[in-house]
Design a protein around this nucleic acid. Sequence first.
DNA 1: CTTTACGTTTACGTTAACGTAAATTTTGGC
DNA 2: GCCAAAATTTACGTTAACGTAAACGTAAAG
Lengths: 135, 135
Amino acid sequence: MPKQTYTISELAHEFGITTRTIRFYEEKGLVHPLREGQKRLYTPADRVRIKLILRGKRIGMTLQDSVELIDMYEPQRNNTRQLHSLISSVKERRTTLLQQRKDIDDMLAGLDEVQELCEQALGKRRNKVAGTKRK
Amino acid sequence: MPKQTYTISELAHEFGITTRTIRFYEEKGLVHPLREGQKRLYTPADRVRIKLILRGKRIGMTLQDSVELIDMYEPQRNNTRQLHSLISSVKERRTTLLQQRKDIDDMLAGLDEVQELCEQALGKRRNKVAGTKRK
DNA sequence: CTTTACGTTTACGTTAACGTAAATTTTGGC
DNA sequence: GCCAAAATTTACGTTAACGTAAACGTAAAG
């Protein structure tokens, strides 16, 4: 069984962020910890939300973007209208994600080239030395 | 032959950014336009740099990050020390890019699920209606 | 020659996402 | 029952990446 609750510093340590950041996320309505007296107690759901927010941040999404994405997973939507709206949100988000993946692949290809050139240059240098030695 | 120079508003229009943004990039040393009197004239190289900066922005890189990445393509480095240093920079960058691609793939998988659920819900609804009709 | 459109410099303003610090509880351990 | 560690609230500060506005130059068109 997963632990039922977490303290703020537990989560801060696990994710490598500060408690300030977690409280800031609460201010923005991204998490809703319970209270035990004064102390905040985070549920596994809160923990997951923080994880998803940090994932979003890694690819340059704003907190608001992440919230919208997370909300897609929690379908409070029942009627046809809202379902269609949700589907089109999904499609939009997918489009930008695909663009981002293309950007990343392009950069990776560029890095491969750079490394190739570096290693060639280093290789030639070693060969030169080896050549002079042999002579 | 590609055009030899561009005005600031040509580039701004092409990339969907403002002239202010382009001048800001110059302040930060990201581009180095020529001058014809007072007016800035951008070379194809400047144009490419802006393109790469915008690509970086799309995946959440800072301008400084983009500059460092772009500099990898312009190898002023001759000695072995610098070549090794460049290679390790390349490796670091590749690591974060791979993490980002994984994040994106995870999100895309999540979106697929959401859409699946939506379409199932809509499908059932249509069947319901069709069912009542048939009766 | 005077609009009209584009370009320039200078400078203050704005927003997101926290950092940092101070003052004040709260609490688990001895 | 006390103390140090951890938590809380409040509030001002910071950085990146531009936005916005004012005040001015210039050049081609009518």
